[in-house]
């Protein structure tokens, strides 16, 4: 899951980036509204964390311009202002959630998970497709009774596939959501990670969960829809 953080306090931004990366998010960051808007308009984020008070374009304007471009990526606003007016304005300008500083980092993570699963068929932080389950809090995966150990990138890939079951995802789309701006891999790197994941998920099973759509990309098969 690729996340954009727009926050003007360098220290705050540093801690947030570190914390989210440790939670297996792919993170881009911007220190002001103009840069933040540029990133948001040009890369396919799964979530945007936006501070309200920013030099240059403020968070409310960035939010509005993102929405004006019909980009419906969930936006979570952070602010040190907590009047009802501030919150109402933020939500009305197109934010999906609002968190007042200072906040507990755990709460930020929980709200992010809630926003990320909102447009999926998953009702909780545990994603389940057939006999495959992925706990997005503990980052543990199982198939049936079998516990599956995943590396960070394998986890990120599986989470992204499970958030979009039955959708055919191109290598480019997968790459864009799994790596940030600092590392843009060739699309065959995606193939390597798919191979890793298949070895752990599908080896020894009759039913394969990951299907290759020739010339297009990959698909995580939901048995109910297969």
């Amino acid at each position: 899951m690729r996340v954009l953080i727009v926050e003007d306090e360098p220290k705050m931004l540093g801690f947030l980036k570190q914390g989210l990366e440790e939670q297996r998010y792919v993170v881009d960051s911007a220190l002001n509204g103009d840069d933040g808007l540029h990133w948001a308009l040009n890369f396919p984020y799964d979530l945007i964390i936006l501070d309200v008070m920013l030099p240059g374009l403020d968070g409310l304007e960035v939010c509005q311009q993102i929405r004006n471009r019909r980009i419906l990526t969930p936006i979570l606003m952070l602010t040190a202002r907590d009047t009802i007016d501030d919150r109402v304005t933020g939500l009305d300008r197109g934010a999906d959630d609002y968190l007042v500083k200072p906040f507990a980092f755990r709460e930020l993570l929980a709200r992010m998970r809630a926003l990320l699963r909102r447009d999926t068929q998953h009702g909780s932080s545990v994603l389940q497709i057939g006999d495959l389950t992925l706990d997005t809090v503990s980052h543990s995966a199982r198939r049936g009774e079998k516990q599956i150990e995943l590396t960070t990138k394998e986890y990120e890939l599986l989470e992204f596939l499970m958030m979009h079951p039955n959708q055919v995802l191109s290598r480019t789309v997968i790459a864009e959501h799994l790596w940030n701006y600092d590392f843009s891999p060739e699309s065959n790197v995606v193939d390597v990670y798919i191979r890793y994941l298949r070895r752990k998920l599908d080896d020894g099973y009759e039913e394969k969960v990951i299907r290759t759509i020739r010339g297009t990309g990959y698909q995580l098969v939901h048995p109910d829809y297969a």
Partner: peptide, 25 residues
């Protein structure tokens, strides 16, 4: 009051997030 709250919250939130993240592992 709003400005003062903002100025007080900013260092507090840096501290809280920093401590939360560092203590998470």
């Amino acid at each position: 009051t709003a400005d003062a709250a903002h100025e007080l919250r900013t260092p507090l939130s840096i501290m809280q997030t920093g401590i939360d993240v560092v203590l998470s592992q």
